[in-house]
């Protein structure tokens, strides 16, 4: 059966140990994690965890059921597909040789990202977007020489009814 990427978000009790219950479930059951983000919500007692995982449909069904079974998971939603918006942020440190600086800035402009640090040898670029946008940007910057990259992992929210 075909493996597919799934983005899941869950509201969990904002308590010590909850993140390790969630991540421990993935490692203990042999599920894979591509990315994981967590931060508090408007309610200080509740955090939101967003996980991107890749698996075939029966495994995804198990992942979701197992997550729901955790006592500290209040609500879980599969955010895969177009009904949710998804964004990821990346900080990319790219080599900036004098002859390429203009080209890099042009790319930054096209992708509507920001240069947030400048040195004689580098730029640090801040970019936010969906997975496709980040991938495209990284592909364009790769030939210039990416020195370091830090990615946030995906965040997702369901679209509200229009």
């Amino acid at each position: 059966m075909e493996e597919k990427k799934h983005t899941m978000t869950m509201l969990v009790d904002n308590q010590p140990g909850v993140l390790s219950r969630v991540s421990g479930l993935f490692s203990g059951k042999g599920f894979n994690i591509e990315s994981l983000c967590t931060a508090p919500t408007m309610d200080p007692k509740v955090s939101r965890i967003t996980i991107v995982t890749k698996a075939n449909p029966p495994v995804i069904e198990q992942v979701e059921k197992q997550l729901r079974k955790l006592i500290n998971v209040i609500k879980l939603r599969d955010m895969t597909g177009a009904r949710a918006v998804k964004r990821e942020m990346a900080l990319i440190c790219v080599k900036a040789r004098p002859d390429l600086r203009a080209e890099i800035l042009r790319i930054v402009d096209i992708f509507r990202c920001k240069v947030i640090d400048v040195g004689t040898e580098h730029y640090i670029i801040e970019v936010t977007g969906d997975e496709g946008k980040l991938k495209a940007l990284i592909n364009l910057l790769k030939p210039m020489g990416i020195k370091k990259i830090a990615r946030s992992g995906s965040l997702a929210l369901y679209r509200e009814p229009k």
Binding site: P16, G17, S20, R21, G24, L25, G28, I71
Partner: peptide
Amino acid sequence: IVGITRPCTKHNYLVP
């Protein structure tokens, strides 16, 4: 022990 028994309990608590 809460860390150790996390995968083999239905739930566990460290009393804060």
